[in-house]
Amino acid sequence: MSDATLLQVRDLRTHFFTRAGVVRAVEGVSFSLQRGEILGLVGESGSGKSVTGFSLIGLVDPPGRIVSGSIRFDGQELVGLKQPEMRRLRGKRIAMVFQDPAATLNPVLTIGQQMALAVRAHGTTSEAAARDLAVRTLTRVGIPDAAARLDAYPHEFSGGMRQRVAIATALLHGPDLIIADEPTTALDVSIQAQILAEMQKLAKETGTALVWISHDLATVSSLADRLLVMYAGRIVESGRVGQVLRDPRHHYTRGLLDSLPATALPGEKLNQIPGTTPSLLSLPPGCPFAPRCPRADAVCATDPPDVVVADRLFRCHHPLGLAA
């Protein structure tokens, strides 16, 4: 692990122990992240991408828990770390931004009060110093007249401004890693673009690494350096964004790309991936995508291997673009 490596995830497994059975939401995920790198984590609902994000910051809700694997963050093992120590990392070195800013900000506290709580979670700071830091951070994320807005309540902000407040809260302590769980999904398209550009800029400026979780391949591809495609709790393909988009190896990635409106001709029917995401409760052995895959055959009933070619990885018996 070189000095530039910030995060190293090895064979992470996060399971939910429900009454109906064990849901293997994350099943053997491995990846690494460099300092300042933006990693796009893409998949459909239920692919395990959000649970992967929550695992990184140690906030998997019961009945879920990390059952095995390793998360090394800047040389420190996070799996099995005691909650008080994990809490000291959260917000300070690893921060998180959520999907809906209307739900994440507390409606009955001013944003100044909420940000002050986040400032003071990591050391005793005077009220004035906490406000000062909040104002500077809000200004950085593009909130005009931040000092006056500090006494406003979340409902007095627009959706885009609320998400900027949430992002500013995540940035307060200058973390090394921000996990962004669909942070633009609840916003207008024009605001989405603004926030994306802003995040990219902030990450570059501060050297903060980003894990950008999204179901929207188009959004992620405009932002990320590398892409990780998840399906049924596993990574099915990863690589540099350009490579994966131009030349996908996995049939699931192909399906996702084909279903993007941008790739279809006007008036043409959009392509869909047939079927739905499988239930993680009763996953058959072999490739989990096989029931929906146009290329599936008998060999797909066995687990596909992890194929690593240069800096790319894919899990498929019949990878695209490598036709024999």
Partner: peptide, 11 residues
């Protein structure tokens, strides 16, 4: 999510 977000901020 309010509680999750507060936890993520280290409260």
């Amino acid at each position: 999510d309010t509680v999750k977000f507060a936890r993520a901020a280290g409260l």
